[in-house]
Design a protein around this nucleic acid. Structure first.
Lengths: 189, 189
DNA sequence: GAAATTACAGACTGACAGTCGGTTTGTCTA
DNA sequence: TAGACAAACCGACTGTCAGTCTGTAATTTC
C-alpha cells in the first residue's frame, strides 16, 4: 500500500484543486462534472471512484477550504495575549480572507444551499465559528447565557460585511465599521 | 382584454402558489419543472409562456414572498411612536415570521445562491433591509457613517438567529438574545 | 503466484430544463 | 359580423448532465 495509495491521493488532490477553482468561478450549479473530467484528464469512472458524487466533491472542497482558513486565522492571532485584541485581530483577518472569491462563493454563498443549512452549520462549528466562540468567551464581556447565540449572530454579521467588501465596497470603511460593531457589542455599560 | 387577461393572471397565481410550496419543501434544486407541471395540470408550453425559466419562476416566488413579509412587518410596527421600540417590535416580528419554512428555505438559504448575491441584495434592499435601515436611522443611536454597514450586519445577525430558532432552537431564548444584541448595539456609552 | 484490492476506463441510462412549431380561444377593428 | 391579431396553451423533441454499470490493468497481500 504505497505507490497505489500515493497515486490515489495525488489524483484526489488534483481533482480537488480543479474543482475548487471551477466551483469558485462558476458556482456549484454552473460547474459540470464533465468540465472537471476534461480539465483533469480523468475518466468518469475514476472520478466517481474517488468522490461519491458532485455534492461529495463539493463537500471535500469546502472542507479543504475551511481547513486552510483555520490555519491562516490561527497564524493571525498567534502571540496576542489580550483576548479582546486577539478577537479584533482574528475578525479583521477573517474579513481580509473573505475578500477571496473562492471563499465568498464556496463558503459563504453556495455552501448553505448545496449542503443544507444544518450540515453547513456543523462544519462551521468545527472551524471559524468554533474559534470565534472561544475568543468571545475569553473576553468575558458577554453573559454565558447569550454566548452561543451572540457568537452566531456576530459571525453572520462579519460574514455579511465580508461579502459587502468584495462587491465594490470600501475595504477600509467596512473594517472600521466591523471594529465599531464589535466595540459596541462588547463594551460594558 | 379581460377574460383572457384574468385567466392568464389566475394561471400565474396558481403556478406561483404551487411553486412556492415545492421550492420551500424540496429546495430549488430538488424541485423539478416536471412536478410543477403535474401539480398544476399545465403543459410545458403554457408554463414557459408565463415564466421565462425555472430561475424566473423562483424569482417571482421570492418577490411575492418578500412582498407579503413587508406587509406583515408594516402591520407589526404600525402605531408605535418610539423609534427604538418600533425597531424592537419589527425585529421580533421578523424573527417570528422567519420561523416559517417557506421564508427560511426560499428567502434565506436558496435565494443568494440561485439568484446570485448581488441581485438578492438588491431585492432585500427594497424590502426587509430597506425597512431596517430606516428604523435604525430613526433611532439616531448610530453615527451616519456606519448606518448602512451596521444595518447590513444587523440584518444578517437577525436572519441567522431566525435560522437557529427554527432548527430546534429555543424560541424564547433566541428572542431574548436578539433583544440583548440590539440593546448592546444601540446603547450610548 | 493466486487472491484481493484499488485505480481507472467509457459506454449507457434516466432525468431534466428548455425549444419549437403548432392549435385554440378570446378581443379588437374595419 | 367577418377576419386579423394576439394571448393562452399544447406536447413532441433536443441537448446536457449526473450518476451507473460492467469491465480492465496494476499493485499489494498472503
Amino acid at each position: 500500500m504505497n505507490l497505489k495509495a500515493e497515486r490515489g491521493a495525488a489524483t484526489r488532490d488534483r481533482v480537488l484543486a480543479i474543482a475548487t477553482r471551477l466551483f469558485a468561478d462558476l458556482g456549484y450549479d454552473g460547474t459540470s462534472i464533465e468540465t472537471v473530467l476534461q480539465e483533469s484528464g480523468l475518466s468518469r469512472g475514476a472520478l466517481y471512484h474517488h468522490y461519491a458524487g458532485k455534492d461529495a466533491l463539493f463537500e471535500a472542497v469546502l472542507e479543504a477550504t475551511e481547513s486552510a482558513i483555520g490555519v491562516k486565522l490561527m497564524k493571525a492571532v498567534r502571540g496576542i495575549a489580550d483576548p479582546a485584541e486577539a478577537l479584533r485581530a482574528g475578525v479583521l483577518a477573517w474579513i481580509r480572507l473573505a475578500g477571496d472569491p473562492v471563499i465568498q462563493r464556496i463558503v459563504l454563498i453556495d455552501a448553505p444551499s448545496v449542503m443544507g443549512w444544518e450540515r453547513w452549520r456543523a462544519m462551521e462549528e468545527r472551524y471559524s465559528f468554533g474559534m470565534l466562540k472561544a475568543a468571545l468567551q475569553a473576553t468575558g464581556a458577554l453573559p454565558a447565557a447569550y454566548l452561543d447565540l451572540h457568537a452566531h449572530m456576530l459571525l453572520a454579521a462579519i460574514n455579511e460585511s465580508a461579502l459587502l467588501v468584495a462587491r465594490g465596497g470600501d475595504h477600509a470603511a467596512a473594517e472600521a465599521a466591523v471594529e465599531d460593531f464589535l466595540r459596541r457589542l462588547l463594551r460594558q455599560d
